[in-house]
Design a protein around this nucleic acid. Structure first.
Lengths: 360, 360
DNA sequence: TTGTACGCGTTATCAA
DNA sequence: TTGATAACGCGTACAA
């Protein structure tokens, strides 16, 4: 049995003996509302349990207070922390977030974005866009767009990410300094500018260390666990056996490590492995993956900050924000087993703790 | 420079030489719209790039097509797959999802729900509600509620979850069958009915196997990694050394395992460990955690199905749906190292693969 | 097939 | 300064 429909502003106005407009003014803390009227209105509001209808507000104000978040799959461990940063920061600014998964399907992505625009969202955040996406279409839309993690069309949209080239360079440089000369690379996917940047960094580091680049040490793993697993097997079967493997993400590194386990190859004694992302699994004692830490929460939070500047009309020019990404040395690169180097304090500390929390 | 504001239905009507009402009929595939008019309308729509304003639609139709999803923290590895199941299924039904994190803070939760109700959401899904939450308040609201994972007030709301008692019983029974008599339990938190159910199952299994319950084998780990870590240390320091440890979730099991690693205790040779949830980490070769598989994607999907029945007014009575949760035997319980038992095929297969995917 | 009221607040105009 | 009235945002539903 449904209860009576929700009270409207008119009901409040009648109960308080004023006009609806005055109720609106009072609720929006506008000036020029008499004290006695204000009090009667407040009483009426709480008596009726009145809550303004945000849909009606949105229609009139031409602002919904909703940000659309488009990503391929929230169940992919890379995204949840970004989403967290986005949602929490948006909420602090009085915005809500609509989540939309695209399965990395361009058609699906287009559909999602169309619907979000129909919903009159105030801003659109797209994470891990690919160069094959037709984002140009949305340039003309009256809705600010911020990209996170990947920037397939640099200079066209606001962007938050990290410097993939220099981060990858750091990782490979570290391996080289440990004495490795046969350093392999497991690439992600070609449509990902992030993955491509990491390949660049790999090449730059090799060059700087005087190591010649060889195709036989490069595989594509499509950013997936299975891809890393296959890449590792492929290295061994081709007898192109590297002593170190740098992977464009942690997922592939885990695949590499598991392939090693199946073949009885010891990590790091026989092969050093380095990943990229610093998923929370990486810090488990049974994993101890050396990797590049991506500040995912902060990426999300910063994306919303950029979005707010746009929504408030405070900025016109495109901004590209690069957050620091640091090498986290753990066990799999063979230097210091079970030694974890983290920069201390700050938001990052909180974040780490939150990661190990879970409700059952 | 903003482009012209988006076209309205009036613009389409004028261009097509018909009334706005007819455009509305045509777009909503209502019958009795003349062929020529229909064609002119379609042309006008595509020429102007018209998209109906869903906010206006929502106001008039008294339906927003939005489902609110309230959870403590999307970055907590337990939730993303549930969220995925919810979002994907909702999308298939033409609904969008607003995501709201509460940090398990009742005040924050209340705020979130109030705002969602103000947004006139058509349904509310709450995952991992606690007995301390004041959900009763929302019973009177004109908005269907479905709970997922935890059901603090059985019979008051629709619910989707698993049978925690029998699942836990299965896990403990398995350990007992392997010969263990000193089986410890690391509990989650008292406000969680799910965690409580697992404790019940633990006790039932012990009784059935003729093992007496002892307080010294029970600890509280608050569902966190650190809690599991501390619990394990506590067992050893108290000299109350169990030969097997059943944890109310995987996160705590990982903490237990890491504590073992730090103390040189071998898993499973010295201590068998069993978790609960089957997070994707559990299947890594370096983890191999025996655990109870929770069909999280399906829980989310089913929650939306229940919600749709409510929204369509097809059902009045409360439903409690219990999905099957199975024991997945891996390495940490010592029976069969590196043997993974999964039921084959079905949605679950897809899900597993998706889990190992990630965009970089 | 069209005119018009309506959903529910906000904002501009006007009156006291 | 304080308040009321009416138009408006944009589609939809119903009577005509």
């Amino acid at each position: 049995m449904r209860t009576r429909s929700r009270p409207r502003i008119k009901d409040v106005a009648e109960l308080a003996g004023v006009s609806p407009a005055l109720v609106s003014f009072a609720l929006n803390a506008k000036p020029y509302v008499g004290k006695s009227a204000r009090e009667r209105i407040e009483r009426a509001v709480s008596q009726l349990g009145y809550r303004p209808n945000i849909v009606a507000q949105s229609l009139r104000k031409r602002r919904t207070g909703i940000i659309g978040l488009v990503l391929s799959d929230i169940a992919n461990p890379f995204f949840p922390e970004i989403a967290r940063g986005i949602e929490e920061t948006a909420r602090k600014h009085g915005f809500n977030v609509i989540l939309s998964n695209t399965d990395a399907d361009p058609t699906q992505e287009k559909n999602s974005i169309e619907i979000l625009l129909s919903r009159q969202i105030d801003g659109l955040i797209i994470t891990s866009a690919r160069s094959t996406d037709n984002l140009n279409e949305y340039l003309r839309e009256d809705c600010p767009v911020v990209l996170v993690n990947r920037d397939p069309f640099p200079g066209m949209f606001d962007f938050v990410g990290i410097d993939n080239v220099s981060s990858a360079r750091k990782a490979v440089h570290h391996l080289a300094e440990l004495g490795h000369r046969k350093i392999a690379f497991v690439e992600g996917e070609s449509a990902s500018p992030a993955s491509f940047g990491r390949y660049e960094g790999y090449k730059v580091a090799l060059k700087k260390m005087g190591i010649s680049l060889s195709e036989k040490y490069v595989r594509i793993g499509h950013l997936k666990y299975e891809g890393g697993y296959r890449a590792m097997n492929s290295f061994w079967e081709d007898s192109s056996r590297p002593t170190a493997i740098f992977c464009a993400n942690d997922m592939m590194a885990l695949g590499v490590i598991d392939a090693c386990a199946d073949r009885g190859i010891r990590v790091p004694q026989d092969v050093a492995v380095v990943g990229f992302d610093d998923m929370w699994v990486a810090s488990l004692k049974n994993v101890q993956l050396t990797t590049i830490h991506q500040p995912r929460y902060e990426m999300g939070a910063k994306a919303v900050e950029l979005m707010m500047e746009r929504i408030m009309g405070k900025r016109e020019e495109i901004r590209r924000v690069m957050l620091p990404a640091e090498l986290v040395v753990r066990g799999t690169c063979g230097e210091t087993l079970r030694n974890e180097v983290y920069r201390a304090g700050g938001k990052d500390g909180q974040e780490r703790e939150a990661r190990h929390d879970r409700m059952g």
